[in-house]
Simulated assay, not measured.
Amino acid sequence: MTALSINLNKIALIRNSRDTEYPSVIEHAQRCIDAGADGITVHPRPDQRHIRADDCYALAEMLSVEFNIEGNPLAAPMKSDRQGVSDYPGFLEIVRRTRPAQCTLVPDNNSQLTSDHGFDLTRDGDMLAPIIGELKSLGCRVSLFMDPIEEQIRLASDIGADRIELYTGPYAAAYGRAEQHEVLTRFTEASVVAADCGLGLNAGHDLNLHNLATFKTAMHELLEVSIGHAFTVDAIELGLNAAINAYLACLR
């Protein structure tokens, strides 16, 4: 069965809207695990708008499921402008300290609201190759955030990635529209290319209870999805345990 990793960024975002530790990222991680989640994902950005470096350290100490840390490997240290919040030490330093089971590299920047495209490895491959080597030496499985483009996926294999995570924003935008079949076909073909290259396949971004089952069925050997924004909304409406069960049902 495809693994379900819950992204806790939105829980941290709610917490950060007040000068408080409530809701607790750690407690929500444990609740997700108890409800059946297979993993926990976080994406610590330099401005620490949601998940903070300290959250990553605390999660690494308590998690009994797979820990996936996402981020831009070039994200540099940044001073915190909030009292009581530690400085951001740089993305790779967080990974070196926590050694998550999986590290997903994403080509975002500080001005982006959220991740919205995959790597261009014709441009970034030479820069990423030694970083991938270091992460693998730390015991991390390395996944690259990618668009469903065959030549790019093959380059991900060439530079040593273990998996790719397909950026599914375009599929979610097309779902229920006339272009859904055409867009989904591109993702299906990309999943076949990944398997042909020996790459494991993950997916994430704007997947939800409406579009997830269709996507999962169309993919070739989908190993993992990470879901945060939609899950948080569904947990408010359905309750956390019921939301976890609903997403697991989509993946069966």
Rank of each mutant, 00 (worst) to 15 (best):
D126C: 07
D126S: 15
M127D: 11
M127Y: 12
M127Q: 13
P130H: 10
P130Y: 06
P130E: 06
P130N: 10
I131V: 15
I132W: 02
I132V: 14
I132G: 05
G133A: 14
G133V: 10
G133N: 15
G133D: 10
E134Q: 11
E134F: 08
E134L: 08
L135R: 09
L135E: 04
K136D: 05
S137K: 04
S137N: 11
L138R: 07
G139M: 06
C140E: 06
C140D: 11
C140T: 07
R141D: 07
R141K: 10
R141C: 01
V142Y: 03
S143T: 09
S143W: 00
S143R: 02
S143P: 06
L144D: 01
L144I: 04
L144N: 00
L144G: 07
L144F: 02
F145M: 08
F145D: 05
F145E: 03
M146N: 03
M146A: 04
M146R: 02
M146I: 05
D147R: 03
D147Q: 01
D147H: 02
D147A: 03
D147N: 11
D147W: 04
P148V: 08
P148C: 10
I149L: 12
I149V: 14
E150Y: 06
E150S: 15
E150Q: 11
E150G: 15
E151Y: 09
Q152I: 05
Q152S: 11
I153M: 09
I153G: 06
R154N: 00
R154F: 13
L155Q: 06
L155C: 01
L155E: 00
A156T: 07
A156P: 04
A156I: 09
S157D: 06
S157V: 01
S157R: 13
S157L: 00
D158V: 12
D158P: 00
G160R: 07
G160P: 03
G160W: 02
G160C: 04
G160E: 08
